[in-house]
Design a protein around this nucleic acid. Sequence first.
DNA 1: CCCTGATTCGC
DNA 2: GCGAATCAGG
Length: 217
Amino acid sequence: MSWTDERVELLKKMWTEGQSASQIAKELGGVTRNAVIGKVHRLGLSNRVEGAPAAATAAPAASPAPSARPAVEPTPAAPTAAPAAASAPRPEPEPEPELEPVVRPAAAAPRPTPAPQPAAPAMRKTGIVPAGQPLPPQPSLNEISPETLASVREVEKRARKISLMELTERTCKWPIGDPATDHFYFCGLPSQPGKPYCEAHVSVAFQPMSARRDRRR
DNA sequence: CCCTGATTCGC
DNA sequence: GCGAATCAGG
């Protein structure tokens, strides 16, 4: 494979969108992520802008780049979409240590069900969508704090939007959209170790008891 | 171990 | 120019 104009264009597009090198490599096919990264650098479109959560601690000490350093400042303030939750004094996006493993199958759960899965994943288990209601997966949004909800919506814009077949042990399996339409897909972002969802979705699937509060409806 | 991007250097 | 190997960090 070679870097045809079309392939380079797709590379630029995906890189700009914030896709990872490996994702781009998979999409292009015939190249490894190394090839993609190498190309990215040669094209000089390194430092991605926008809400780049990257910050991969580049050049810790040795950066012998003689003249390849445009001396571009890494953006003073990088609000990595971290809308500090309920008046948080500290900008710590880290999950509270006291976070109870209380599972909240948001989608209809009269009583505390020990089922560690909201709904869609359950579907995955049986491979069958309960014939009853057309849309069982989506959690009842009225029980989630507006902060978290906003954060999730933001994350879902960046979702990889992968298909069922692309799910792996480490991709977020949170369903997005209506399974009955072609606008359905799975989050696909990196899942938290040992959990089926990414950080954002874990936060809505597993909530501290304290965060639970009735919302008028 | 999984992943990320960065850099080097032989081709 | 290319990209595997390697490095460094999460």
